[in-house]
Design a protein around this nucleic acid. Structure first.
Lengths: 168, 168
DNA sequence: TCAGAGTGGTTGTATTATGCAATCACTACG
DNA sequence: CGTAGTGATTGCATAATACAACCACTCTGA
């Protein structure tokens, strides 16, 4: 594992280290949108966020996530779209987001469509997480495509969302 | 499940809901100390935290965690120790902390003793999480004690820490 | 009985982070 | 050549954080 970056950690605790790296509201939500929403550009993240992030905050978080080794940024040509990619460390935040989502599903309200998505993920279990991590490695790290029959994890997620939305 | 408290959520997303409830540095660390460090009193949390939380911040976070339904507080008799307990919702943040800790173990440095603890948990896998949640239900919710031969999860964690610390 | 330590905090102040709106320099496209 | 889109930055008001001092109360031991 590619350990590194002790940075200015407040302690040697692994939980604290993770919290220091990505422990604020917006960092989690940016990762969520990149992972589950397949958003990779500034404007996509800015307009696509259902919580409405401000552009200066997004700019700041992207910088911090790059500095923390969770994202990479393609060299910026001024005025041209810059693509952000997840690193392996970024991809491996998926189990954290999954755990957060499951907690939210059990203990908070939420829109039915989004609940359905989360329920699908929970129902498919750890295998879904692995499959999605593999797909992210293909898209973000250039790993060789996975052979599969049937729709990929992101497609199944989107389909679940659409099915649920259609019922209203 | 005891769903409730939509509160002033920014969106209907389960991940967002979890992040809103406990998505700041100190909330996570307070939960960590209560769950893994068995600390239940203001002074214990204040002095026991290796990151050094300030008393006004601790006061504020305890209040927020109670309001969010993750902790309960025994009715306060002035000048007498007040005990905080985890609710079921609080206990179920354990998988989140576990996921956070594993990420930190893989991608950040940390003291060898604390790394050993986290490695033990990972090695024992999901069964450890379940066992610890059961023990927390006994201590915090008054559930009937679990039958067990051999040391409980918190004892094994402490033992791993001591073994690692002795090697230095 | 009475000092000293311990209880869960509050208050004040300074510094830092956040949220919002407007703006900027640049490019791609018709 | 103009319009829309790119990734931001700037200024300003408000909120969160950190640090130290302090408070009213209780429990303990001599």
């Amino acid at each position: 594992m590619g350990r590194g970056v002790i940075a200015e950690a407040r302690s040697g605790c692994a939980i604290n280290a993770a919290v220091e790296a990505l422990g604020d509201h917006w960092s989690f939500l940016v990762l969520r949108d990149m992972i589950f929403g397949d958003r990779r550009y500034f404007r996509e993240l800015l307009n696509g966020s259902i919580e409405g992030i401000a552009s200066n905050i997004l700019s700041d978080r992207l910088k911090k996530l790059v500095a923390a080794g969770l994202l990479t940024k393609e060299e910026a040509v001024r005025g041209r779209r810059v693509r952000y990619s997840l690193t392996e460390a970024g991809i491996q935040t998926l189990p954290i987001l999954f755990a957060l989502g499951n907690w939210g599903l059990d203990w908070r309200e939420g829109t039915p469509e989004l609940r359905t998505r989360q329920e699908l993920m929970r129902a498919e279990g750890p295998a879904f997480i692995e499959e999605l991590m593999d797909e992210l490695r293909v898209h973000h790290l250039g790993a060789p495509p996975v052979e599969r029959d049937g729709p990929g994890p992101l497609e199944r997620l989107e389909a679940a969302y659409q099915r649920a939305a259609a019922k209203t």
